[in-house]
Design a protein around this nucleic acid. Structure first.
Length: 480
RNA sequence: GGUCCCAUCGUCUAGCUUGGCCUAGGACGGAGCCCUCUCAAGGCUCAGACACGGGUUCAAAUCCCGUUGGGACCA
């Protein structure tokens, strides 16, 4: 009943994501979750969320919430869970006892100090540092006091992992240690609780980080001793920082929610993360539906990948440019409110904010940048950037600006085309260059020297506010 | 130290299974040019890699062996 063939027909695919609650959800974790999720959705399978909190003595509801929030933000929905290992302690103990009763485990009374000295001894003599098996054949029944339960690992033959990603990996069983499965404090160890969980949750494909590959031959004999069918295993390559060391905080933000705060779109994050270790020819952009359809283990990379924030930024900009403006506007609203524009935002429609998005989306790479670009369009008047005003709103500019306002006022309604005509005509008559009038107008309208096209700006502002701001600009110019 | 994994432009990768279509393709980043009312965006162009050494073969990025270099795990 040990099935190891791929897909294994009839049975439904069940995969899991099993993060430990470390306070936040790491982007490496998100990528692991993503591959599992894609496979589950593609196979019409089940995606389980499990919190591995046995080791984490101070694992809190807060950190579980952080995982849940992170998963929700990137829209990776799970079908079962979140389960917590700390709520399943009886299950681990029962299985441990079963292993003991069936002769697959034994009590060990060696103290950590004894183990340490014997290990060092063995090492100086050139031996292996693994447990020397002193208690293996003592036949101890649950002894009083401190004792740990050890698993009797096979000592000959080989354990073969037919990995979904790495292919066939062979381990000699001689290297296998008699792992502690229950500590003297009654807590299960990692390698034991994962097996019990994966088996009892009916996980068919265990897909996790590369760092667990060498744990796999330790776990397989436990599945077998417990009489459980073996799942398929898949080990994803790690994500590295720019110095090729494991990605960590010193490389920059690693929490998925930090990217939310920096103004990244969840779809861009997912798209970037999936391409870090997976590819489909030369394609760079994928919708969720496409990913679900095209995902395949055979296109998962075997080597580690360096996280490249610049490419992520580019992708985010792509998403900003091509996503429906209303969607972007909705994501932008909370950030605008945080930026102190609560009243202003409430005073206008989402459609108008979407117009702002269209106005600036070509020139921003994150929502945070977008907030900065979009702020001048809220409110009646604008705050001048001092340097910009000093340069472009001077007495020399006042005259021509006044002429411009007069011509605009002569046009009863705003029309982008007509106003542009009027503008160009004035420039021609004055014998100046476009820029000589455009920059002062730009500063008057937006307060800054860089903005979208002037006539698009006027369109968004509307006739009245355009004229008002121009007059304010003239006032400022005349004063200087 | 032992075991295991990995190795194509600076980075992400295509190609590797089933050798020839590869004077190695795409993307990010970089450089330059064009467009232009500013800032962007966009278009075009350029620089840039098969870790090394041996085999096998008419032919190797692709297959085999070794070396080196990274990484993970066990302690």
């Amino acid at each position: 009943m040990f099935h190891t063939s791929d897909g294994d027909a009839m049975s439904q695919v069940r995969v899991r994501f099993a993060p430990s609650p470390t306070g936040f959800l790491h982007i490496g974790g998100v990528r692991t979750a993503l591959f599992n999720w894609l496979f589950a959705r593609q196979q019409n399978g089940v995606f389980v969320l499990r919190i591995e909190d046995t080791d984490q003595s101070r694992s809190t509801d807060d950190s579980i919430q952080a995982i849940v929030d992170g998963m929700r933000w990137v829209k990776l929905d799970w079908d079962e869970g979140p389960f917590r290992q700390t709520e399943r302690m009886d299950l681990y103990r029962d299985h441990a006892v079963r292993l003991f009763e069936q002769g697959h485990a034994y009590w060990c009374v060696c103290t950590p100090e004894e183990l340490e000295t014997r290990r060092k001894d063995a090492e100086t003599k050139g031996g292996s540092p693994k447990y020397d098996g002193r208690c293996r054949n003592l036949g101890l029944t649950k002894p009083p006091g401190e004792a740990a339960l050890r698993f009797k690992a096979p000592q000959d033959g080989q354990t073969v992992v037919d990995d979904l990603i790495k292919g066939r990996v062979v381990f000699d069983n001689q290297i296998l240690d008699d792992l502690i499965i229950l500590r003297s404090n009654g807590y299960p160890t990692y390698n034991f609780s994962v097996v019990v969980d994966d088996a009892s949750m009916g996980i068919t494909h265990v897909v996790r980080g590369d760092d667990h590959l060498t744990n796999t031959p330790r776990q397989i004999p436990i599945f077998q001793a417990l009489g459980f069918p073996l799942p398929r295993f898949g080990h994803l390559p790690m994500i590295l920082g720019s110095d090729k060391a494991r990605l960590s905080k010193r490389h920059g933000a690693t929490s998925i929610m930090a990217y939310k705060e920096m103004g990244y779109l969840p779809d861009a994050m997912v798209n970037y993360l999936v391409r870090l270790g997976w590819s489909h020819g030369d394609q760079e952009r994928f919708s969720r539906e496409e990913l679900i359809e095209k995902f395949s283990w055979k296109n998962v990379q075997t080597s580690a990948a360096v996280f490249n924030p610049e490419k992520l930024l580019w992708l985010n900009a792509e998403y900003l440019k091509t996503s429906p403006p209303t969607e972007i506007a909705q994501a932008l609203v909370p950030l605008l409110e945080q930026a102190g524009l609560k009243d202003e935002v409430r005073a206008c429609s989402i459609e108008w904010i979407a117009q702002l998005v269209v106005l600036v989306k070509e020139r921003t790479k994150t929502l945070v940048e977008m907030v900065h670009w979009v702020t001048p369009y809220f409110g009646e008047v604008v705050v001048f950037d001092e340097e910009a005003a000093k340069k472009f709103l001077t007495s020399t500019h006042a005259a021509v600006l006044t002429k411009l306002v007069e011509r605009f006022e002569a046009l009863p309604t705003f029309s982008k085309h007509e106003w542009e005509e009027a503008f160009k005509k004035l420039v021609a008559e004055e014998g100046i260059k476009m820029g000589q009038l455009a920059q002062p107008v730009r500063v008057a309208l937006t307060g800054r020297t860089a903005s979208p096209g002037l006539f698009e700006v006027m369109e968004v502002l509307g006739r009245d506010r355009t004229l008002l701001r121009l007059r304010r600009g003239i006032e400022r110019a005349s004063r200087s």
